[in-house]
Structures are given as structure tokens and as C-alpha cells.
Amino acid sequence: MNTSRQAPGTVVAEALQDIAAFGSFFSVESGGPAEGWHPVEEAYARGFADLVAATADRYGTGELRIGASIVQLGHAARLWSPLLACTVVHAIVPDLSRVLRADDGPALRLPADPDGWYAPAIPRLTEVLYEMVMTRHLDVLAAGLRVKVAPGLLAGNAASALVEAARAVLTARPDLADPLSALVAGLLNTGRLNGTGKVLGPDLTFRRRSCCLYYRVPSGEKCGDCSLAR
């Protein structure tokens, strides 16, 4: 990324603080003591095994692939939500390359003086956002998973998380419907997100072409965007 397009860390931090009000998945801590946190790449190399096992246990299933799917879906939401909201609401693209993960859970954190760029100055913005989340994070996590999960399912999870993040932004800022819908449409036509599902209307209702497997846990059910929820 061209450093001439960088935004001051204070501006990036203010944008992140503002959009945290949109929901828990939009909240990304910044700064603080190093204890209790580690680079997310270390967790990717371990396939988020701690969270996968804990999630499977919490939902009462012996199928670790279900735990892996739920964890990956949640992690995708924690990446897409602040990135999408900052980009559309504040025209700021926060840098997610130095993300830390909590030792004891899925929470994410950025440095005290987070890097970022002004969105209007970024050529091929859609491709940049795709690479930031899919290539640098979710593809790496997928490669580290200790259990086999279908690539199409993981891509569908990423798409579902993207659209749900967009729906939350739309609820908070309905005036941004047009740029938000255009950005989501562009992302859903990019790379592995292409063909994962279809946006059905201006409210960003989504129908994915895969299933996250949540319905297989005891007392589980099909999600609203599931391909099986006909």
C-alpha cells in the first residue's frame, strides 16, 4: 500500500472507536498491556484449536468440524465488521495486518496507534479489502485447521459474515445504503466469495449456497441465510 495514502493513527483509532457502537463484532480493542494477547498468526498455525474444542464442547457436539465452522464464521465477522464499517462510514481502511488475538477467547486487538489508509485514494478498493480479510487471514486460518472442513463451506461462512456485517451497518446508517450495497456486491463477485450466495433485496437479505452446520448441534437450527432453509 502506498504510504502517501496513509491516515494518521489518531484518525484510524477514532473511526474504530465510533463504529464499535454498531455491535460486539465491530469492537476491536487498541493498545494496552502485551500480557494476555498474541499475534493472530500464531493462532492460525494452531488452527484455533483451543477455540474449536471449546466451541464444540459448549454446543454439545463431538464433531470438531462444526466447532471449526462456527469459530471461523465468528472470526470472519470480527474481521469484516470493523473493516467494512470504517470503510463505508469514515472512508478509512484500517490495517488488519498486525491483529492480536486474546489468549483466552476470540477477541481481537490492534496496536495503540493503528495504521490505516484513506479509502478514496486506494485503487481497486474491493480487491484490497478482499485480500486483507480473505487472503491474509481466513485463507491462513483455513490452512491451519486441524479438522477437515469443506472449502466451499468456509467461503460461504466468509460471505455470510460479510453480508451480516453490512446489514448491521445498514441498520445504523441507512443513508449509506447505496455505497454499502455496491461494496458488498463487488466483494461477493471477487475471488472465492464469487458464487457463495446471492443478495435478494435492498435490505441485504442473503441466501448462501452452503451451510455452516450449526443445525447439527443439539437444539441447533438452520440460519436465516442457509441454503437448507427453504
Rank of each mutant, 00 (worst) to 15 (best):
P151E: 08
A21H: 11
A165W: 00
Y214S: 12
E221R: 07
P179E: 04
L180H: 01
V89L: 12
A13N: 08
A77Y: 01
K148R: 13
S30K: 13
D103N: 14
G74L: 00
Q72N: 13
V28M: 10
L170M: 06
G220R: 02
C226P: 01
V28L: 13
V52Y: 00
N194P: 04
I122T: 13
F25I: 05
P39D: 09
P123Q: 05
A45Q: 05
A54K: 05
V88R: 02
A161G: 09
D113R: 11
A53F: 03
G144A: 04
A172C: 08
V89H: 07
S30G: 12
L170R: 01
W80N: 03
G32Q: 10
D18R: 15
R46V: 10
A158N: 04
T126R: 07
E42S: 14
V217C: 11
A161I: 06
D115Q: 10
A177W: 03
L145C: 04
E41K: 00
L200R: 15
A49G: 09
R207F: 07
L64W: 00
S97W: 05
L84F: 05
V133Q: 03
P94L: 06
H38R: 15
L16G: 04
L141V: 07
V71K: 01
R46L: 15
G144V: 03
Q17Y: 10
T135D: 14
F22V: 12
M132P: 09
R98C: 15
V184G: 05
G197I: 02
A20I: 02
L176A: 14
A229S: 15
D115P: 00
